[in-house]
Design a protein around this nucleic acid. Structure first.
Lengths: 171, 171
DNA sequence: GCTATCATGTAACTGGTTACATGATTCG
DNA sequence: CGAATCATGTAACCAGTTACATGATAGC
């Protein structure tokens, strides 16, 4: 269901697009909230077209198909956004690793936490940079979400490394 | 793989536990980074025991089995934490919904964003409350991660609702 | 005695990953 | 002319969900 909604949303946001274009969109901005590869996206688009949520608006060279949302698709997306209670479940391998890092001793955990904090700083800066060059409002809000999430993990990793270090120094 | 690591981590952190206990642990603290239900946890524990990462330390009434990590399991966990490059992919239905909410008009998106911000405030407060009553360091760091993430989404939702409102007022 | 919680399990299904497979076009 | 990128597709496999199934114990 979520993949379907994500595809509808991206199509509404960007206008008509191909499976390839949508795959790229996932790799960039949408990747901060949902992830999908071409091998899952192409069959899903076919299925969505079969039940009328999207339609082919153009067939180009070497099998290229450009899809756009139908009115039924727009209704479906709106309903989901307004009425559907989303699952609050998370599965994030990078966060799982951070979560468990404090189980290691200070000599191992502190450098790993600092390295991770640095990585989040880099990503936050990149997103901030992107924000300042975006014309479109919606894309800007979306990039800002990623920014806030990166800053949160950066702050946590730094705070935790500091706490572990202090504790180790005190003991 | 990640479920296996999560289970190893929780067992190291809490000491020996049953499948039921681990399921509860996922529902509480670990749920902020990984999610799993009993129907997946029980078979996984059997598999992990079969290849020596954990062992049954006690068999209680009505089929209750208490597991603990073996030395091999500890080594495996440590290797994963230190050497494994985690996948940076995210799948978060609640965030996907937030991400797409700005596609709705201001009259619909703003109240939904405000409601979501309020929910994140509540969750952040609950986690903060939990933190102040925790004896164990590792559990505290873990709860703090959830706290930072809740505050990030709260800040984003508020900032975005404000921006959409201002834009609508200006136009 | 009833309800909530403890406690485990399995089968069918859906969602997602990996790997294979193909070929055109663009840029240097 | 070679490498990167555009562009799509499928099959086998693994991970995760839903729903069914069972039964003990504790507290009201």
């Amino acid at each position: 269901m979520s993949l379907r909604i994500a595809l509808l949303g991206l199509l509404v946001e960007s206008g008509a697009a191909s499976g390839y274009g949508l795959t790229k969109h996932f790799e960039l901005s949408a990747g901060n909230v949902w992830h999908a590869k071409h091998s899952q996206i192409y069959p899903e688009l076919r299925k969505m077209e079969a039940d009328g949520a999207i339609e082919t608006v153009e067939e180009g060279a070497r099998g290229k198909r450009t899809y756009d949302v139908t009115e039924a698709g727009r209704v479906e997306l709106r309903r989901w956004l307004v009425e559907h209670e989303p699952e609050r479940t998370i599965r994030n391998e990078a966060s799982l690793r951070m979560f468990l890092l404090p189980l290691l001793g200070p000599e191992e955990s502190v450098p790993l936490l600092r390295a991770e904090a640095a990585m989040y700083t880099t990503r936050a800066k990149r997103l901030d940079e992107i924000c300042s060059h975006i014309g479109n409002d919606v894309s800007m809000y979306q990039a800002r979400m990623g920014y806030h999430n990166m800053r949160a993990m950066e702050a946590w990793a730094t705070e935790t490394a500091d706490a572990i270090e202090q504790k180790a120094a005190g003991a």
